Simulated scan of single mutants.
Amino acid sequence: MAQFNVNVERFDPYKNFKFRVRWEGRYVAGVNKVGALKRTTEVVEHREGGDPSTSRKSPGRTKYEAITLERGVTQDLEFEHWANKVWHHGNGLGQEVSLKDFRKDILIDLCNEAGQVVKTFKVYRCWVSEFQTLPDLDANANAVAIESIKLENEGWERDPDGTELTEPTLSE
């Protein structure tokens, strides 16, 4: 079993604004929002005929919710290329989907305020179920154009090799 280094000097919880997303061994540029990692286990209720009128409960199937990644629209085509592996119009009959590599494992790094990775989560067998290449466009707005992908997945876990470093101090 992996041993975790504990930073006994840290009392504050981690902030949600320092993170990075990786797939295929490289960081994905410009991701500014990652949906929550959430799983739900169904409850199976049962009772035996001789039991009092109360039910017993046990765990059933576990489901992992889809994760949405958002970023500003740029010339980087990573989101579009991945989404096109799931469905690409015009590829011809029988070639609309890339069965070989439409799924990817991704890594989500949570960082402390100093930019050090403190937790990494592995998300398994992701594939793009929704792709938004452009938001609503509005000539009167003052906002960044955001593209997004929704990733279906088959589970996630915290990387057991993750260790928390001693936080740096500033020299005077």
Score class of each variant (00 low, 15 high):
Trp87Ile: 05
Asn153Cys: 10
Asp51Glu: 05
Ala83Ser: 12
Lys150Asp: 03
Pro52Ile: 03
Arg56Asp: 08
Arg103Ala: 03
Gly94Ser: 02
Leu99Asp: 10
Lys15Trp: 05
Gln116Phe: 09
Asp76Tyr: 06
Ser58His: 02
Arg61Val: 06
Val43Met: 04
Val28His: 03
Thr54Phe: 13
Val6Lys: 15
Ala139Phe: 03
Val43Thr: 06
Pro135Trp: 02
Ser55His: 06
Thr133Tyr: 07
Glu96Ala: 13
Val34Met: 09
Glu157Thr: 13
Arg20Glu: 13
Leu151Asn: 07
Ala2Tyr: 04
Leu170Asn: 14
Cys126Leu: 05
Leu134Met: 15
Leu137Asn: 05
Trp87Asn: 15
Pro160Cys: 01
Glu164Thr: 10
Leu110Ser: 07
Ala139Trp: 00
Lys85Asp: 12
Lys100Gln: 12
Val73Cys: 10
Met1Lys: 11
Val97Ala: 13
Asn84Val: 00
Lys122Glu: 12
Gly30Ser: 10
Asp159Asn: 15
Leu93Ala: 13
Leu165Lys: 15
Arg39Phe: 10
Asp136Trp: 04
Tyr64Lys: 09
Glu45Tyr: 11
Glu152Val: 10
Val43His: 00
Val28Phe: 02
Val21Glu: 01
Gly115Trp: 04
Val86Pro: 04
Arg39Lys: 15
Ile67Trp: 14
Val97Pro: 03
Leu151Arg: 05
Ala139Val: 13
Ala141Leu: 01
Arg103Pro: 00
Val86Ser: 13
Glu157Ala: 12
Ala2Leu: 08
Lys85Thr: 11
Asn91Ala: 15
Glu45Trp: 05
Asp161Gln: 11
Lys18Val: 12
Thr40Asp: 13
Met1Gln: 09
Ala29Gln: 11
Asn32Thr: 09
His89Lys: 10
Leu93Asp: 12
Lys85Val: 10
Val34Ser: 07
Phe131Leu: 00
Gly72Asn: 07
Tyr27Gly: 01
Thr133Pro: 12
Pro160Met: 04
Pro59Trp: 00
Gly90Lys: 06
Thr169Lys: 15
Glu113Thr: 07
Tyr14Lys: 00
Arg71Ser: 01
Asp159His: 00
Lys150Gln: 13
Gly92Glu: 01
Arg26Ala: 14
Arg61Lys: 13
Ala141Gln: 03
Lys38Ala: 08
Gly25Leu: 03
Asp138Tyr: 01
Asp136Ser: 06
Glu45Cys: 01
